[in-house]
Write a protein that binds this DNA or RNA. Structure first.
Ligand code: ZN
Ligand code: ZN
Ligand code: ZN
Ligand code: ZN
Lengths: 136, 136
DNA sequence: TATAATTCCTCTAGCCACTAGAGCTTCAAG
DNA sequence: CTTGAAGCTCTAGTGGCTAGAGGAATTATA
């Protein structure tokens, strides 16, 4: 049996976050000590590790809810898990693409030789998207 | 003089967002009609366009506050603007790097040949970061 | 065993940058 | 002068936490 603090140390999930996950229904309400403190089992630990790792990989809490549900049903086909992961991958890729467009523009505007604001490329570009090279 | 709706159409900023920016102090409180409706000038329009473009480039509201301040003082050196932009560029780049690490892992785990959850690479990997190839 | 230090509890509120909706008032066209 | 669109304020919700207040329980030390 682990206290919430021990669970936190073992998983790297902060204590208030564990309680938040409980509130969101990602983890079951654990047993309590006589004094009403949370006591976790190994199952609770591995479930939280699953959540932690999924969050680290950028899955939303909603996605994780679905993935956890699936993981409780080993006999089910895994196509649902794949579609969640594939959708997330697409999302990550489109975010990368967007950030790369930003990176390009930001690199460009920070090449400014002016000394003061009046003719600064940064300020001028912000005032006028027409000065940008790409859409973003 | 523009109504808030006209300003919204011209800048692409939604009406509630314009009011939000006013509340945040990014734009001055505009004059009002006799019936208390907001009336904007061309200055208001260009200030909002500046904000819109800066947001599109990913600057935070706090950064924009600083950039707007600078843009009102053309005689100032533009080094402050540059450091805001450079810091933001760094931030964008580190987000790209992080997303690329995620992309790599997600691509890997979605190559799963199993048919059901019991042996699915997606679910197994989420349960155990040790199965990942990289840190992320 | 008494006390002190640490950990835990619940509850509320704050973060960012909006977005939605309720219930009301004003404006502009015909 | 009526009507319908557009505006007003205010509150609350989004996601994923995080911080703090004020108190109770647990653990370690003397
Ligand atoms: Zn400059
Ligand atoms: Zn632009
Ligand atoms: Zn699979
Ligand atoms: Zn991993």
């Amino acid at each position: 049996m682990f206290s919430i603090g021990q669970l936190s140390k073992r998983t790297g999930v902060k204590i208030p976050t564990i309680r938040y996950y409980e509130q969101m229904g990602l983890i079951d309400e654990p047993e309590r000590s006589e004094g009403n403190q949370r006591r976790y089992t190994k199952d609770g630990l591995s479930r939280l590790s699953f959540i932690r790792h999924s969050r680290d990989l950028g899955f939303s809490v909603e996605d994780i809810r679905g993935l956890l549900d699936l993981s409780q049903h080993p006999e089910k086909p895994c196509s649902d898990a794949h579609s969640i992961a594939a959708r997330h991958l697409q999302d990550v890729q489109s975010r990368i693409a967007k950030l790369r467009r930003l990176e390009r523009e930001l690199k460009r505007i920070t090449k400014c030789d002016a000394g003061n604001v009046a003719t600064c490329a940064v300020i001028e570009t912000l005032a006028d998207h027409g000065l940008c090279e790409t859409e973003h």
